[in-house]
Design a protein around this nucleic acid. Structure first.
Length: 591
RNA sequence: GGGGACGUAGCUCAAUUGGUUAGAGCACUGGACUGUCGAUCCAGAGGUUGCGGGUUCGAGCCCCGUCGUCCUCGCCA
């Protein structure tokens, strides 16, 4: 090693020792006769002092040092003089009196420095990621990520799971997300697909008898990005044989508790609370509600049916829903123009026709441009239904159940942030269970699998599979942390007949099924044990545990919203020769 | 594919809302200084205001297009 100690290591106890440290220059302060350098590595910072005593020429060399140069210093650990102790540094009680200095590498004037207070734009950080990753905050996150993944691996190892790798080059399955494709050279015109998840492989592993499987698995989905979505992400993929949903949930409960304790020092009582999908949609408008605060959606369709207010009345008569929410004490928070903005937002983004609202006045009356359309008794009933008190802000949407869900869910989220309805340091973990098996796809005019086509229906719903698909509930469970989907899984179908029935319903005929999942269908006939599993989004877990609002900050080398890598400039052009070898011709996209 | 925000010195931002030679802090260059730790002080250099077009006597500012980054709807079994 070129060093005897790291930059975060030295303490008073080391005073008098001759040591060698290496690192990057975090900052320097040139006082003429003496020069101070804060030397940084991932363990911390240590102050190095250069003076005439350092030796011939050393102070002159030190004077040339600049930010981010890489140096090696040998010196004597000395206590800092009275009054110059720096409490901001762990090593602030000592300094290294330099006796020798080696410039290991210079650095061009960097576009920004790791210690900068004005964080530059994200594009610059991504282009020079090697500098960005030197920042303490990025290091903290990546260290946290390491500890969490290690914690997961240890936990599953202790529970007798085996980590087994599955292929990256697989076969395309048009269901689900868009695949990333990899052309085959050997098979001209054919393509591999990168895995969206190791779903089929892990089921095969169950059939193969590896009854407790786990993998830290890279997954790929060629869909548009979001703050919490990358095209390339990491799942903790789990599958178990001879289990019920309770077993899977129990295992993950234990993992949540362990990591919350180890990483955040939080005590999470078990079992984690559960809510059905239907209840979540009814009360919160979403299958991953943020339960850190308790604002609930209230159905007022019956009251709407009695009003003269055309919008409400027409919706109720047409069999639509009128649902509302009470933002407690928020009446004074939102001005007329802010409400107009809110209204435009729910119209543009969620297809709402409008937003009805009331402010509860000091005398208990409801103030709103539409209030005159309501009989006073009805206003009182509406207020009571939403538990309205003076100062409250009541919002309503009249639309299909789906649209009211989307709009009110979004508003609820906004209220949560605007009104600071929860403690950001807290964590709320829960399970959403009993998802529908199928969702109607109006465009394709077919039933689509809500989760994936191998999801087992509840036994009591088997009979309804053909007669009433919408009523079928799956043995499915999603883990929700702070309103974010942190994982999801199902018990799988291990019975050929049920599998065929589900395929039929999804419009996957025997030939198609054969073509796409033939190997799984075959395997199911060779002694498949009952099995099920779950996949956790590791990047999101890190984001939630670190309290970040952006998944890119949890990934060493993330992609931009247009899925490019600003550092490597991927995706890039390839030689014509490479294309020829792959039997590929590119076509300029039509303008 | 749709909606929105942003783009000015290497970086973070400003420019009295269309008006003279586009400014500041940090970084950079040169100098001073032996106890700083966001060091300080003096001096200096640094700009095709993302790019292309238009409107105007005059554009960093207005309009159109385009590129990039971010947020979002659709999409994400």
């Amino acid at each position: 090693m070129l060093r005897t100690h790291t930059c975060g290591q030295l303490r008073k106890e080391n005073v008098g020792e001759t040591i060698t440290v290496c690192g990057w220059i975090d900052s320097y302060r040139d006082h003429g006769g003496s020069l101070f350098v804060d030397l940084r590595d991932r363990y911390g910072k240590t102050q190095v002092v250069f003076t005439a005593e350092s030796g011939p020429g050393i102070l002159d060399t030190a004077r040339m040092l600049r930010d981010e140069w890489v140096i090696q210093v040998t010196g004597i650990v000395a206590p800092r003089p009275e009054g110059t102790i720096n409490p901001k540094l762990d090593t602030g009680e000592i300094e290294v009196r330099s006796r020798s200095l080696t410039v290991l590498n210079k650095c061009q004037t960097p576009p920004f420095t790791p210690s900068t207070r004005d964080l530059p734009g994200e594009d610059l950080r991504l282009k020079h990621r090697y500098i960005d990753l030197r920042r303490a905050e990025m290091q903290r996150t990546l260290i946290l990520r390491h500890r969490m993944i290690k914690g997961m691996r240890d936990y599953f190892d202790q529970h007798n799971f085996l980590e087994i790798e599955t292929p990256i080059l697989g076969r395309s399955t048009p269901e689900g997300a868009r695949d990333y494709l990899v052309p085959s050279r050997v098979h001209a015109g054919k393509f591999y697909a990168l895995p969206q998840s190791p779903q089929l492989y892990k089921q095969i592993l169950m059939i193969a008898g590896y009854d407790r499987y786990v993998q830290v698995a890279r997954c790929f989905r060629d869909e548009d990005l979001r703050a919490d979505r990358q095209p390339e992400f990491t799942q903790l993929d789990v599958e178990m044989a001879f289990v019920t949903a309770e077993d899977i949930i129990g295992i993950i409960d234990g993992l949540v508790q362990k990591l919350a304790k180890e990483v955040l020092g939080l005590d999470v009582p078990l079992p984690l609370p559960r809510m059905t999908y239907d209840e979540a949609m009814e009360k919160y408008g979403h299958d991953a509600p943020d339960l850190r605060f308790d604002m609930q959606i209230v159905d007022c369709t019956d009251l709407a049916a009695q009003t003269e207010f055309r919008v409400f009345r027409a919706a109720a008569d047409a069999g639509l829903k009128v649902r509302g929410m009470n933002a407690k004490g928020a009446a004074s928070k939102y001005s007329r123009s802010m409400i107009d903005e809110m209204t435009d937002w729910v119209k543009n983004d969620f297809g709402a026709k409008g937003l009805a609202w009331f402010k509860v006045e000091a005398d208990g009356s409801l103030a709103s441009p539409i209030a005159k359309n309501f009989a006073p008794e009805l206003l009182a009933q509406i207020k009571d239904r939403l538990n309205g008190a003076p100062g409250d802000f009541l919002v309503f949407m009249a639309d299909t159940f789906e649209v009211t869900c989307k709009g009110l869910y979004a508003l609820r989220k906004k209220f949560g942030v605007d009104l600071k309805l929860y403690d950001p340091a807290k964590m709320h973990c829960s399970w959403i269970v009993e998802f529908p098996m199928f969702a109607w796809d109006p465009e394709e005019k077919t039933w689509a699998a809500m989760h994936h086509p191998f999801t087992a229906p509840r036994p009591q719903d088997l009979a309804k599979l053909d007669s009433d698909p919408a009523a079928c509930r799956a043995i499915a469970y999603d883990l929700v942390i702070n309103g974010s989907e942190a994982g999801g899984g199902t018990i799988r179908i291990h019975d050929q007949d049920v599998q065929q029935q589900v395929f039929r319903l999804l419009g996957i005929d025997a030939e198609k099924a054969r073509d796409r999942f033939g190997f799984l269908l075959d395997a199911l006939q060779f002694g498949a044990p009952p099995h099920g599993g779950i996949a956790l989004g590791i990047d999101r877990w890190v984001m939630l545990f670190a309290g970040l609002d952006n998944i890119r900050d949890c990934i060493a080398f993330p992609k931009t919203q247009k899925a490019s890598d600003l550092m490597t400039e991927a995706p890039g052009d390839v030689d014509l020769r490479q294309l020829r070898e792959l039997s590929i011709q590119t076509v300029k996209p039509a303008k």
